[in-house]
């Protein structure tokens, strides 16, 4: 049978920064073809296609909570594979090699992590589960 794609709406303008990405305007409806764990989603809109940051998209038919994991306040130990400096107030800056706790894994590629008393969003692609090889 036909493949039914999920339709999402862009919540803000996104200007693409590489050839495999697709730019969107706020309010655009796009079909999501593939959701990468990285938080980049492969989308199509008419004859255009490319990767769009998931954080710029919201489901057209209400929140898509079924796919979203619950927070785990106990935390899951991860090691920072690559450092990142917070660019927004709710993000956290970490250095390579630090061990932190992941308390909420979100589909948009930004996880809530805890380090000592601080919590904030961090790019999931820069984290690795503690005790696992890359």
């Amino acid at each position: 049978g036909p493949i039914i794609l999920q339709t999402y709406r862009a919540i803000a303008d996104y200007e693409k920064s590489s050839s495999t990405e697709m730019g969107v305007k706020a309010g655009d409806a796009v079909d999501v073809v593939e959701k990468s764990e990285s938080g980049w989603w492969f989308c199509q809109q008419k004859n255009r296609r490319g990767w769009v940051p998931a954080a710029y998209l919201e489901p057209m038919d209400g929140p898509d909570e079924s796919e979203e994991q619950e927070p785990n306040y106990a935390g899951e130990l991860h090691v920072v594979r690559k450092g990142y400096t917070a660019a927004q107030e709710d993000e956290i800056s970490l250095k390579e090699g630090e061990t932190i706790e992941v308390i909420h894994k979100l589909l948009d590629g930004w996880w809530v992590v805890r380090k000592d008393e601080a919590t904030g969003y961090y790019p999931s692609m820069y984290l690795q589960k503690a005790g696992e090889e890359k």
Binding site: S38, P53, A55
Partner: peptide, 22 residues
């Protein structure tokens, strides 16, 4: 064919456009 996703973290929209408050 779908190429691999970009290797940089996906950017986040500005706070005032965010769908869920932190």
């Amino acid at each position: 064919t779908i190429k691999h996703p970009p290797t940089n973290p996906p950017p986040r929209p500005p706070p005032d456009a965010r769908k869920k408050p932190p």
